[in-house]
Write a protein that binds this DNA or RNA. Structure first.
Length: 261
DNA sequence: CGTATCCTGACC
DNA sequence: GGTCAGGATACG
């Protein structure tokens, strides 16, 4: 369940469940996770105390008292399930973190594309990231600089975590629709006025008012999005049918009339 | 830059 | 059986 607000909520649940506690055991239940966190490495986590849980973009960092870091990323479908060590893990649980107090954290991910790995220090646990999408100091000047060297379309550029950390496919499309910017517009050529609208639009789509309360694939949440997954449906502003195109291998939804530039 | 790839499940 | 899926990365 990525996209920054969802990761933020998941991180807070994780923090509440494990911060200050001690790891009893970590195990992987799927070869894709085992490959990243081999049993020999997982064993090193035993008896480590969790000093802090942190989010950076869509990454989650579990800081341990010896300075090492357990890095987690949900990718497409991951989520935490907090349970108890004496129960059976969920069918789609790919890794388990058991705490000495009996709390169990399950990394639940049907596709098993999630990342989970152990690093000696925080420094080598993360790729370089751009400004946080929900950073109050995000402004048109920053975007202008970050996009200045990009000759490709703006929508894939917005999803590049080195440009803005935390913006994903859904909210990139939603923000561009709100800002009335064509997703195919060349990133470096988007005007300052448009970038100013885009900054406001990013705040709007990430703001709690406009976000679904739970998992955003829930049918009941679908209506919360203006363009995402609405191919052929009328634009809520101008009633032009929403179009779907593929950019960098991902679906982009947009209104061909509202987003002309 | 775009494309293929990692994976599995859900849905048509 | 084919297609699609909220992400990121390696590669050409």
């Amino acid at each position: 369940m990525p996209e920054l607000p969802e990761v933020e909520r998941a991180m807070r649940r994780l923090r509440k469940a494990i911060e200050g506690k001690t790891i009893a055991a970590v195990q992987t239940l799927h070869f894709a996770l085992e490959r990243q966190l081999p049993d020999a490495k997982a064993r090193r986590l035993k008896a480590k105390r969790i000093s802090r849980v942190e989010r950076r973009g869509k990454h989650q960092l579990i800081h341990l008292d010896d300075g090492s870091v357990l890095h987690a990323h949900f990718r497409m479908n991951g989520d935490w399930m907090i349970s108890r060590a004496d129960g059976a893990p969920d069918r789609f649980t790919r890794a388990i973190i058991d705490l000495t107090d009996g709390t169990r954290v399950e990394l639940n991910d049907r596709r098993a594309l999630s990342a989970l790995s152990l690093h000696a220090s925080a420094d080598d646990s993360l790729p370089s990231l751009g400004m946080e999408a929900n950073d109050a100091s995000l402004d048109a000047a920053y975007l202008s600089k970050a996009l200045g060297s990009r000759r490709g379309p703006i929508k894939p550029a917005l999803m590049d975590q080195k440009v803005i950390a935390g913006l994903g496919n859904i909210y990139a499309a939603e923000a561009l629709w709100r800002a009335r910017i064509n997703p195919r517009a060349v990133a470096s050529s988007v005007s300052k006025a448009c970038l100013t609208r885009l900054v406001a639009a990013i705040r709007d789509v990430l703001g709690s008012k406009n976000r679904p309360p739970g998992r955003y694939t829930d049918k009941t949440n679908r209506h919360r999005f203006a363009v995402y997954d609405r191919e052929g449906e009328p634009c809520v502003v101008c009633e032009t049918p929403i179009r779907r195109i593929i950019q960098a291998g991902r679906s982009t939804y947009f209104c061909p009339k509202c987003q002309r530039s």
